[in-house]
Simulated scan of single mutants.
Amino acid sequence: MGLVFGWRSAMLLSATFVLLPLSAALASSLRNRLANRTLAALTIVLIGVFTPWLIGFAGFYDRWRWLTFLPVAVPLLVPALLRFYVHALVTDTLPPRWRFMLVPGLAEFAFQVVSFCLPMPLKDRWADIAFSVVTPILSLALIGSFGVHMAASVRQLRRYRAALVNVVGDDARFAARWLSAAIAAFAILWSIWATVLIWDWLDPLGYTGLMWLYLMIASAALFLAIEGWRHANAPFPSLSSLERVPAVPAKGPARDWSRQGADWAKQTRLAGWASDPDIDVATLARLLGTNTAYLSRALNEGLGQNFSTFINGLRCRAVMDRLEASDDRDVLTLALDAGFASKASFNRAFRATTGMTPSQYRTHVAEAKNHGALPEMRRPDASLPSIPET
């Protein structure tokens, strides 16, 4: 029987040709090495998950029956590796007891290796038993594994983002929102995958009936690998450094944190320190001649803002001032000059500050000037009357 490379095999093979170079690029990345190598391993595992369908549609199993139980598809490794990637990205370490977390996937791999090595007559009989008994067990284990690991990953990302807003000026730059989207996609996808396998066990769907599912797996793998490669060299601050903020000493004279916060806000704005895209709480504290604990308290208690909101508010104020001064440069240029690292983070911060998009604000400014006045807008420093407008 000859091999036939139809559209099904071609689509999965095309995904493989994209994913393999991405894996190599991630594995050779010098920054975020642990996270990127973990993602490279995850990408290879995902290729393995849909490889049986790639070669199956081409007729490999019909021509070479001994390929049954070929040990390449180990979906139980995916939840653990995805969790490892999230943890390594934000902490530069693997989670505690990470070896134990690999046991289900390694057990699945060992089962496939042993089954693959069986003599052909015994393998045929064992395949019928395995499909009836082992496949449902592995499917249920996959659902449970994803539930545990994805919940832990989401908690880790929330903890990381909560720490980011108090330390870095552009938290959206490191919030890894694409990773949340990937986690959600994989959680939904693998729940569907396990459910379909159980359904297929009860009422066989046929080989072609499952093709759509493996195309979805390949698409999710492409999204995760491409986004991971795009952010491979981003200088993600580690969670331990974000949470390493000293406490304010209990002794000493009481301070008016509102006044202190207003004074430091004024210095920050006049000096233009917010225009540094890499500004963080430690850098600003050093520039102000204080420490991170006092600065954080002045912002949180005195101004009612976290560090990211404070810095992005000043940056938005700088853009608003340029728009009100009829600066005709495009808004993205103004945003980059003000210290924003990306258009997405600027748009999000500007809308939160003014209630409008930048283009809407520019239009309102022009209309207001035609009537001899500027529009009433929410301003990032509305609570800081001591900051001069000039």
Score class of each variant (00 low, 15 high):
V18M: 10
L336N: 10
A163K: 01
I217V: 15
A232H: 02
P235F: 08
D203A: 08
A181E: 14
A325H: 04
A25M: 07
V365G: 06
W53L: 14
S23G: 14
E301N: 04
R83P: 03
F236T: 14
D278H: 12
A254E: 14
G2A: 15
G272R: 03
I143G: 09
L89G: 02
G228C: 05
S342P: 06
R351I: 15
A225N: 09
K369N: 09
P358H: 06
D321W: 01
L30R: 15
V103W: 06
R255N: 10
S180V: 09
L76E: 00
F109P: 05
R99S: 03
R33P: 11
R161M: 13
F346W: 00
F109L: 14
P249W: 02
F186E: 06
D170I: 13
T353I: 00
L39Q: 01
S258W: 09
P246M: 07
L202C: 13
Q260E: 14
Q156I: 05
A172T: 06
A232M: 05
L19D: 11
R158Y: 12
L142A: 13
R378M: 04
A141H: 00
Y294A: 09
D276I: 07
K369A: 11
R269S: 09
V103S: 08
A176C: 09
D328C: 00
G144T: 11
M377D: 07
T91Y: 03
A366H: 15
N233M: 11
N291C: 09
S308A: 10
Y214L: 05
T43E: 13
R31M: 12
A172M: 06
W53M: 12
A325Y: 00
A58F: 08
